[in-house]
Every structure is written in structure tokens, then in C-alpha cells.
Design a protein around this nucleic acid. Sequence first.
DNA 1: GTCTATATTGTGATAGAC
DNA 2: GTCTATCACAATATAGAC
Lengths: 202, 202
Amino acid sequence: MSEKDLNTEQKILEAARVVFIEKGFEGARMQEIADEAGINKALLHYYYRSKDKLFEGVFRDAFFELVPHIVQLIKSDIPLFDKIETFVREYIIVFQKNPYIPGFILHELSRNPGRIVTMISDIGVDPQVFIDQVEQEVNKGTIHPINPYQLIVNMLALCIFPFVASPIIKNIIFSKKPGYFDQFIEERKTEASQFIINAIKK
Amino acid sequence: MSEKDLNTEQKILEAARVVFIEKGFEGARMQEIADEAGINKALLHYYYRSKDKLFEGVFRDAFFELVPHIVQLIKSDIPLFDKIETFVREYIIVFQKNPYIPGFILHELSRNPGRIVTMISDIGVDPQVFIDQVEQEVNKGTIHPINPYQLIVNMLALCIFPFVASPIIKNIIFSKKPGYFDQFIEERKTEASQFIINAIKK
DNA sequence: GTCTATATTGTGATAGAC
DNA sequence: GTCTATCACAATATAGAC
């Protein structure tokens, strides 16, 4: 579906998404969003009353595009090692397509942590299933004892961090290997899960 | 040294540091920096000509406080497992004291990646020593084969991510365990390095 | 060096014609 | 629904007195 096929309201939301996600709330300009959408500023206010309202729509979409997805996966009823492999692969693929989203969400949440409270109740957030699953594997002796919370954060960290820190990685760590980043991420879809599984399996 | 002992220029830089690191460049207000320093706006411009110049000072300080530190450690001549343990512990301690710094640096770099280019040349950035060290251990058969670049990013990710993502961790993952975050970080000083070492050692 | 007052520009938001 | 023109205010920056 090309841009021409979208109605004005959709065009605005899509333009706002592009600008807000790249620049953040404070850095985004209504003028830039209007330009991106090929309309003028006044129309933005006609459809969405304020910058805040427009932002809220964009943020909620981005948030609910990512978070419930992983919450489901974490709770799902598949073997632990399979779950880790799937989690890592699927998540990295999502970020590969939307590399700015992780930084956007993290920055906006730290700018306004209260925002999250209004959204949590909409998602069934309960890491208990995963925690039980990890503890069962520990009891069975298939993995080393580990704090399940540390494991969850490790999984998130290994998937998300490369995208949040891409300027540092590209320019400092890979400064001698220009263009290596994409290949690095490609490798990571399997490397990261192997890393995690090696870390916990007996 | 209390605030009273600082001269005006130092007070301004310290105030700017507090405000910029918490709010980011776009979110920071010169008025707020002036208030924080206990002076008025005009004096900010007397000492630093513009908001940009003031920010640049703050950013450089924060950047050079963190990055050369780890570059040195990564290059240093100590055994791999010791190096990993030291790296994780020291880095997490730094972030414990300055939890906003990682997010600040990452966000500002992604907002203006060009900034980093002017700074890199000042640091001797060369991961080669670490890469050689990892490959030697692989050849000796003490660790599994691993891409050293993946390993470096994993180490950074496990240390830095919890601070960048603290709102998500506190409100979503630990929503049933209020106040747990600090203890979680404390544990992590040793848990994260054990995780890494388990992942690579044979 | 430090202040008050003011200039200047940028930006979100609205009024009103079509 | 969409536009042009404009308002109102916020924020950086400067002038000038002390």
C-alpha cells in the first residue's frame, strides 16, 4: 500500500511515527511532521488536538507493537531452550526492521515513567510462568541455578542493547570494520541464544 | 567539597550536568540550569556563549568519564576471566552511582552521531588486544569458539542495559516486587560475570 | 561578575476564508 | 477538510545598569 492510498488521518499518524521515533517528543517539530505527511500544520491540530495527543497515539502503537508480543512468548508453553531461541530470533528480526524503536521507547519511558503505569494494566504482565519454568529446569538438574529475573533481563539486554547503542558499536567497537554492523546483527540471531543457553545449561 | 566552595563557573557546569543528564539536550531549559546553579540565565551566557556550548562541555565530560575507562580495562594485560569479572563489577558500580548517564550518552549519540566522530580520535580505541586474547583462549581450548565482537557487545549489554531500561524493569518485570531493583543490581555485580564466564568456558 | 529588562526567534495552537 | 494568516507564549540570547 503506497502513501497515496492512505487517507489524511493515516498519513498524519504515519508521519508522526517517523518523526517522533527518530527525534523523540521534545526533538520533534509539528512542522516537520506536517511536511513529512505532505500537509500543513493546521491539519495536524484538526485531526489531533495537540502534540501531546498525537504523540500518545504514536507511543501507544509502538509500545503495544512490542511489549505484549514478548509477554506472550515469555508465558507460552514451549520448552525453555526453544523459547530462548525463538525469543532472540524473533525479537532481533523486529528490531532489524525498526532499529529506532527500542531507543524511542526507552527514552520516552525514562522521560515520563508515569506513562507506563496507565498501560500496564492493559497487558497481562506476569513473569510467573517463566519463573516457574526456569525453577523446574533447575530442580530437574538440566540447568545451573540462576535467578530467573536476572535471566529475563539478560535475554532482553542481549537483544535490545545492540540497537540502542548502535552509534557506539558502529563508530567505536567496529571503527576498523565499516559496514560490519548488519552482518553482526545477522549472526546475532543465533549467537545470542547460544550464548544464553551455554550460560545456563549443565 | 560543598556547593558553596565552588566558583560560579564550576557551579554552572555542575548544574548543567544534572539537568542535561536528566532531561537531555532538547528537554533541558536554560532557566532550570540557572535555578539549579542558584544564579540567573544571563550568567549562563556570560560564561558559556550558548546552550550548545554548555551542553558540549557536559557531554564531553560524561563521555570521557566512561569510555576511556573501559577501553583501558579491555586492553589491559590480565587473564580473561579476571578481566570479565573486574569489568562487570566496576562498570555496574559506576552506573549505580550515576544511573542516568548511560541513557544520556546513548540518546545524545543517536540524536547526533556525528558528535562521536570528533571524540574518537582522542581515545586510543583498538579492541585488537582483547580480540587476540579471546582467540588465544579459544586456541588453548579453555573457552568455546566465539566471535570476540559478540562477546564485547554482550559484556556491555549486560552491564548497561538494566540502567537504560530501568522503568520497564521496575514497572513491568518487577511490578510485583516493589523496591527489588536495587538488590537486583547488587546481585548483578557477580551474577552477570558468572553468566558470561559460564557461557564461554569449556 | 552579576543583575534586570528586553530583544528575537521558534513553536504549538487557533481563527477564519474557501 | 484544507488552506493562509496570525496569535500567544516559551525559550535562547543580548543590552545595559550597577
